[in-house]
Design a protein around this nucleic acid. Sequence first.
RNA 1: CGGGGCGUAGCGCAGCCUGGUAGCGCAUCUGCUUUGGGAGCAGAGGGUCGGUGGUUCGAAUCCACUCGCCCCGACCA
Length: 577
Amino acid sequence: MRFSQLLIPTLKENPAEAEIVSHQLMVRAGLIRKLAAGIYSLLPLGLRVIRKVEGIVREELARAGAQEVELPVVVPAELWQESGRWEVYGKELLRLRDRHEREFCLGPTHEEVITDIIRREVRSYRQLPMNLFQIHTKFRDEIRPRFGLMRGREFTMMDAYSFHADGADLDREYEVMRGAYERIFRRCGLSHAVVEADTGAIGGKDSHEFMVLADSGEDAIASCPGCGYAANVEKAEVKAAALERVGEGAVPPLEKVATPGKRTIEEVSAFLRIPPSRFIKTLIYRSDAGLAMVLIRGDLQVNDLKLRRHLGAEVLEMASDSEIEAALGAPVGFVGPARQKGFKGTVLADTSIRSVGDGVTGANEPDAHLLHVEPGRDFTPDDFADLRMASPGDACARCGAALEFRRGIEVGHIFKLGTKYSEAMRATYLDEEGAEQVIVMGTYGIGIGRTAAAAIEQNHDKNGIIWPAAIAPFGVTVLPLQPDQEVVEAAAQITEHLESAGAEVLLDDRDERAGVKFADADLIGCPVRIIVGKKSLAGGMVEIGSRQSAEKTQVALGDAAERALDALRAALAGEGA
RNA sequence: CGGGGCGUAGCGCAGCCUGGUAGCGCAUCUGCUUUGGGAGCAGAGGGUCGGUGGUUCGAAUCCACUCGCCCCGACCA
C-alpha cells in the first residue's frame, strides 16, 4: 500500500496526555486517537495491528477446538438480575434504558449471555464439551481509565467460555487453553509469565493470569526463584515464620502514652520515634460474618482477598468510624487488641504479629497509645493466619526462598468458573443415566489492545516501535529516497514483487525528504526495510535493513524482494511463529 | 470518590502572578532553491484563549460556578 493514500498522522512530539511509552508511541505513530477518556479510535495502522493479534488468537483457539461466535454488546438487565450481578457489579457496569424504559447494560463480560444460549440449546451430555469464544467490544466504566489501550473503558477482548459435564473435563480443557495462550503470546513476540491469580468472590478453583513483564505494568507479581512459584501479589502466599522478630530483650509492662491527634502509623511512628514494624496495626472490618478485628505488623498491608477467604465472607468492608467507636469506645486511630473490653467479634492476627515484640498499638481511648505490648501476654488473638499482602522480605510458602517482586501487564486470564452461573441460571444437561446435572464452566479472556500495547512496552527504542514481525502493521516498508524517476520505479517494482508474493508492504511514496521517511519508518517500526536511493541504485543495488538490529545489507535490485521475504520469514521464525 | 495539575491556532507550549484587546516552535498553503537521517529563504492563512455568569471603562489574565482531560491515591488505625 502507498503511504500517501493512508491516514498515518505521525507526530514529532509526544502528546501531552500520554504517560507511558506504548501510549505515546501508539499516538505518535498514528495508530490511535482519543475520543474521550478511555475511548479510542483505531486508525488504519492501529487496526492492522489489532487484526494481526486477533488473527493469531483465532488460529490458536481454532487449533484448540473452540468455535467463534459473536454476542451482543447491549444486554438486557434481566439476565444480569438472574445471575445476581446486576446488584453486585457496581458502577463499572454502564446501565441504560431504551425508549420503553426497559433496562439494559453494556456487556463488560458475557457469562450471562453465553450461559443463556447454552441452557436453551444444550440438553445432553452428548453435546458436551463445548468451547465458544468471541472477539468483540467490551465496555467497563473503569474508575480510572489510563495509558491508552492499556486500560480503556471500551476495548476489544477475546472471551471464551467452555462447558463441561464434570470438573475433570474442565481441568482437561483448562490445560488445553493454557497451551493455546502460551502459543498466542509467544507468537505475538511477548515474553510473559503465568502466575496464580485469586479467584475472587466467584470462588472457582484455579485461575491463572498471563503477565507480560514490564515496569509500567499495573500488577505486581511475586515469584520464587527457588521453586518457580509465581502469583499475583493479591494472591501470593507467604511463609508464616519467616519474618525476623523486631524488638529485643525483656519487655517492660504495658505503658500508656499520650499521642494527641496522632492517628496514622506514620504520625505515631514519627511522634514516638519507633519504627512502623513495631506497631500492631489494628483494623476493624464488617462482613456478613460480623465484625472482625484484624491485626498486622505496622509496615505491612492486609490483603482483603485473603481476609475475605479466611472469613468465608461474601461482603467485606472497613467498619465505619461510628461502628468502631461503638465496638471499642475509642475513635479510629486509637484502637488496639490490648486492654480492650467487650469487643464482639473475631480477633484475627496475621502471622507477622508473631514477629512483633515490645510493640505499639492504640489504647482504646482517645489520644493515647500503648507501649511495650507483647503478643501472648497482653492479648491473644482467636486465630493466626496469612492475611497480608506479600512484600519484600517475605518467603515462598512452598520452599522458603526469598520472594522476588516484579511488575506485569495482565494480558490474559484463564479461570475454572465451576457452576456459579450454570447453577444461578439453571444450565443443565442429562447424563448417561438420564439424571439432570449442572454444567461445569470455564472462562478465558485476552485483552487484544492491551496485548498490542504490551508488545510495544517490550519492543521499542528511542526512535519508535520495533514490532514483532507477527503483529507488525506491514511486514516490509519500502523507502524511495529521491523523487527521481529511476528510484521511484525501482521502489514500485520491488513493492509489486513483494505484494504479488503475498507480503504486506508500505511504500513511502510521499514527496518527503529522506530524513522524514527514515524517522517515520523508525517510528512505525515495520521489521524489514528496503531503501532505494540514487547512489546505490547507480550500481544496481538497494539496501535491506532490519528495524530490530539496524543492520543494512546491499543487495542487487533484482534480488531485493526475495531477500526481504527471507528476512521476514527469518524474523517470524525467530519469534516462534 | 479524595488529592494534585492542566484546558490559549492541527500539535507542543509561552503570556495570567502585577487586567489595556494574543505570541513562539512545529505543521499547513504559495513561490524559488534543495534532496541518503525530521531542509533553507521569502511570503500567506489559521484563535468564540473549554463554557457560563460576575467584578471592571476594559478580562486569556481577577472571582464564582460548570464541563473536559491528565496524574496520584483510594487501608485511616
